[in-house]
Design a protein around this nucleic acid. Structure first.
Lengths: 211, 211
DNA sequence: TACAAGTTAGTAAGCACTCACTTATAGGTA
DNA sequence: TACCTATAAGTGAGTGCTTACTAACTTGTA
């Protein structure tokens, strides 16, 4: 029944199948959690027998690790600041915060599976969620916190602990994304574009910390 | 081995045992998720045989429902505004937002199990998470949004969609709580008291929306 | 001593995972 | 072009273990 949607009728090359299994597993893990997803379900969704999974991954844990590895490394979390580098240099405060929020919101929207997966990992206490946190989140705090500190020296922002400001700001858009993904999928409560949201959040924050 | 911590050696009254099972199950569900927690683990932690669980709850789902019911109804989510009612009447803006945040942060801290449980429910798409959302969260948006609208009419706040402001504000402290509970348990990134956090968040928000 | 509290020893279904097996196909040969 | 064939892709029928849940039972205590 799933065959029409998930597979072609022909065989697949090894790499192709591996990739497909990762994609499907990620979607299912993000929906039902790691323990809540069976290898049989993954196999069915891919239109193959369960044994195929274990041809590619020696066990279920390894499949999970492969997904997180692949996502955390490849999918370009390496440099979320590349796009706002010039704004930082020009000390375009609004540009910095607006684009930061907009990038995140867009990214969360198009890759909500990953966000759900990270939440599941964090709740289940999986190590790879920690790795992600330490590699990515601490970076943001250092980077954005550094920018805020600089602007405080410039006399543009008032004196507040920069990390608290970063937390407040990240909180705004992460919480907004979580609402859209988890609780208010139909956006009954608030329905605005990512651009609008980013603009409002950036404005509130900047007005909130400027001198 | 758990016996010394979780039980007395004597029998318990029916209600008492039921209550204990709820508490233990909630803790375990919040740590490992619903599917990730076995009835045997719950029974062991309570120091009784598995069959006891099914004397009190006809199945595992009903145990889960009992926890969420109990928590969502009894534990006083009915009126989070009671404590700030006077601040609202006096139009003490800082008092309103500060106490709102502080109450939430304190509450999340002492009842982090419930927060984790709600996240698990939301991720797993459990109905009772929706119920909580509709009964509690929409209330806050209406209430706090109404206050902001009133203060806009008073000319105290600038014109922004009140619900977006509410989201930004809730985002700050909910995200802060989630960080403390999920990712940064040792608070390496930021270590501040709930009072400090509430003060900073309230200040940023109020400066951000005042006229 | 009646009855609620608790136990023991199950069951059927579901789980991750394995192994001996079949089949499609890329690419060399005649 | 047509035919091999080695090998990678895929299967079916299992394994042993764990799970939620049950029923017939024993035991403590108001």
């Amino acid at each position: 029944m799933d065959k029409f949607f998930e597979t072609t009728n022909t065989r697949m090359a090894g790499d192709e199948r591996r990739e497909q299994l990762c994609q499907i597993a990620m979607r299912l893990f993000s929906e039902r959690g790691f323990r809540g997803t069976t290898t049989k379900e993954i196999a069915n969704a891919a239109g193959v027998s369960e044994a195929v999974i274990f041809k590619h991954f020696s066990n279920k844990d390894e499949l999970y690790a492969a997904i997180l590895d692949h996502k955390a490394c490849d999918h370009g979390f390496d440099n979320p600041f590349a796009e706002i580098a010039d704004k930082i240099e020009r000390k375009d405060d609004f540009g910095v915060f607006y684009n930061m929020a907009l990038n995140a919101l867009d990214h969360h929207e198009e890759d909500s599976d990953f966000l759900r997966l990270m939440l599941h990992s964090a709740l289940e206490g999986h190590k790879l969620a920690e790795v992600f946190f330490e590699n990515f989140i601490t970076h943001i705090y250092d980077f954005l916190g550094g920018y805020i500190r600089q602007r405080q020296k410039d006399g543009a922002f008032r004196e507040v602990e920069p990390r608290v400001v970063v937390r407040a700001f990240i909180g705004m858009f992460v919480h907004h994304s979580l609402n859209n993904i988890l609780w208010d999928k139909e956006q009954k409560l608030i329905k605005i574009s990512n651009e609008e949201a980013a603009r409002e959040f950036a404005t509130i924050l900047l007005e909130g910390i400027k001198k």
